[in-house]
């Protein structure tokens, strides 16, 4: 197996990625590179393939063709141990997906303890640190059902960070939240970006993309239609499809 290179300058390299669901071609030809510390935001209409693309990065979706190289390892190779790669990639979902039968603390300590990255006590200390970082240090012993949407999503971020990943994927992290809770989640993500985390964010939050994003990709119909500096793309889109989409959402 190829060695995982955590210090790779090119964290994610995508070459001619294709993804089909049966006969439907969802991703037709995607190529891009995400460098260390970059905050790549992906926008686009629903059905454009942006979530599918994100899910290909940790192979939650099997890749039909092309290459996906994460930390120097081509994850389309079926011989690699995908679980090892995933330990290094945190993921945050639209619907939080917290484990309802575990407390907040157990949600966060599960993976590091189960995968023998930390002892139980180390994981607990780390979990309390992370909860403090996302502003929820009083909530360790609650169950997910006792939290608001914004709190759940912040716990989900803490859970993903518990494995000390160096890439974080966000799949529309604020789309299922009440408007007044969007800010608290975006603030946590902003902190994370400022600390140099490599992030790929599928989002509808143009404000976040403009302020925090270092690069923006507009996807439509399974292709990258336009890509560049977020302020530049949002303020002066070149492609008609981008202009059309931005007119609808802004």
């Amino acid at each position: 197996m190829v060695e995982i290179n955590k210090n790779a300058e090119e964290k994610i390299v995508v070459k001619n990625l294709k993804k089909n669901f049966g006969k439907a071609e969802v991703l037709k030809d995607i190529s891009t590179t995400v460098h260390k510390g970059e905050v790549l935001c992906i926008i686009g209409p629903s059905g454009s393939g942006k979530s599918t693309f994100l899910r290909c990065i940790n192979r939650l979706e099997d890749i039909t063709a092309g290459q996906m190289i994460v930390d120097g390892v081509d994850i389309t190779d079926t011989k690699i141990n995908i679980n090892k790669i995933r330990e290094n990639i945190g993921m945050v979902f639209q619907h939080f997906n917290l484990f309802p039968h575990m407390t907040v603390l157990e949600n966060i300590t599960l993976a590091p303890v189960e995968l023998k990255k930390m002892t139980k006590d180390e994981a607990k200390v780390r979990a309390h640190e992370l909860l403090e970082r996302v502003g929820l240090k009083e909530f360790a012993d609650r169950y997910p059902s006792q939290l608001s949407g914004g709190q759940k999503q912040r716990v989900a971020i803490a859970r993903a960070l518990a494995m000390n990943p160096d890439i974080m994927l966000f799949d529309e992290p604020t789309s299922a939240l009440d408007p007044e809770m969007v800010g608290e989640v975006l603030n946590v993500m902003k902190d994370l970006a400022q600390q140099g985390m490599t992030m790929v964010v599928v989002t509808h939050e143009m404000g976040f993309a403009r302020e925090v994003g270092t690069r923006l990709i507009f996807m439509d119909g399974g292709y990258i239609v336009e890509e560049g500096d977020p302020r530049e793309v949002i303020n002066n889109p070149k492609e008609p499809r981008t202009i059309n989409f931005l007119n609808q959402v802004l």
């Binding site: 330990e87 993921m91 979902f93 993976a111 189960e114």
Partner: peptide, 21 residues
């Protein structure tokens, strides 16, 4: 919820561990 399995697998847990835990 399939999202439960995805969340667990995305943390690096195997299929067996995901089933069990």
């Amino acid at each position: 919820d399939p999202g439960q399995i995805e969340a667990s697998r995305s943390l690096g847990l195997s299929y067996g561990k995901t089933m069990r835990r």
